[in-house]
């Protein structure tokens, strides 16, 4: 794939394998992928195809065995732990399937968490949290604990937490996997709006063709390899 000027994510010849005793388990092989800035990309594939592993590599949660990953022109796959953590804080927003909100914190305190890593003042953090919650339509639920929110609301709080630092890249792992169709649609609408209206680059892992239909492009993974690419 040719590297366009607007390419934000560039994955080249990435492999990931684990050693289990004498056996080598190949999870990803020869992955080449480019994602343009502002693109909404869906990663689809059956269980064990390596989608989540690829997402982890893109988010700096794991390192490739071979190959390179550049995001925003910066190679991040070989950064040591501490700079990699700082890089994640600056560039990546994660949305998880099961929301992963801290149950002991209110929605606004959950959203504030990534901002604790910044030198922002308390007042500025509060201001940004309010904006993020307003974007996801949850301003009125700011003081509620996760157990007081519906699944869809929890996921929207999770999205607010992911975008509150204005990251370069939004990585979503099955964001509608635990939601009913209506709530799932609301979340997909939101992700679509973030990409379309706010210029956010979104990469979403999903099993659901209904969800992938909302993306601007879908990449299929099968047994650790990209098998088909279907631009929309």
């Amino acid at each position: 794939m040719s590297v366009a000027e607007s390419t934000l994510v560039q994955v080249q010849a990435v492999e990931k394998f684990y050693r289990r005793g004498s056996e080598t388990v190949h999870v990803l092989e020869g992955i080449d992928l480019g994602v343009r800035a502002g693109e909404f990309l869906a990663l689809m594939g059956p269980s064990g195809s390596g989608k989540s592993t690829l997402l982890n590599l893109l988010g700096g949660l794991d390192r490739p065995t071979k190959g390179t990953i550049e995001i925003g022109g910066e190679r991040m796959d070989h950064l040591p732990d501490r700079p990699l953590a700082a890089w994640r804080a600056r560039h990546i927003g994660f949305v998880f399937q099961f929301y992963n909100l801290l149950p002991v914190l209110t929605a606004e305190r959950n959203v504030e968490l990534p901002l604790l890593l910044t030198p922002l003042s308390r007042a500025e953090r509060k201001r940004r949290v309010a904006i993020a919650l307003a974007i996801v339509g949850l301003a009125h639920r700011a003081k509620h604990f996760p157990r007081q929110l519906s699944g869809g609301e929890q996921q929207r709080a999770g999205i607010a937490r992911a975008i509150v630092t204005d990251p370069t890249l939004l990585l979503c792992d099955e964001p509608t996997g635990d939601l009913d169709r209506k709530a799932g649609d609301e979340v997909l609408n939101l992700l679509q709006a973030l990409s379309r209206d706010h210029g956010k680059t979104v990469i979403m892992v999903t099993h659901d063709p209904h969800a992938s239909a909302r993306a601007t492009r879908t990449v299929f993974l099968y047994k650790g390899q990209i098998v088909t690419e279907m631009p929309k």
Binding site: D81, R82, A85, R88, R90, F96, L102, L113, L117
Partner: peptide
């Protein structure tokens, strides 16, 4: 939860 915090950028 600790994994989530680290994913956000909390260092070890």
């Amino acid at each position: 939860e600790l994994g989530v915090l680290k994913a956000m950028g909390f260092t070890n």
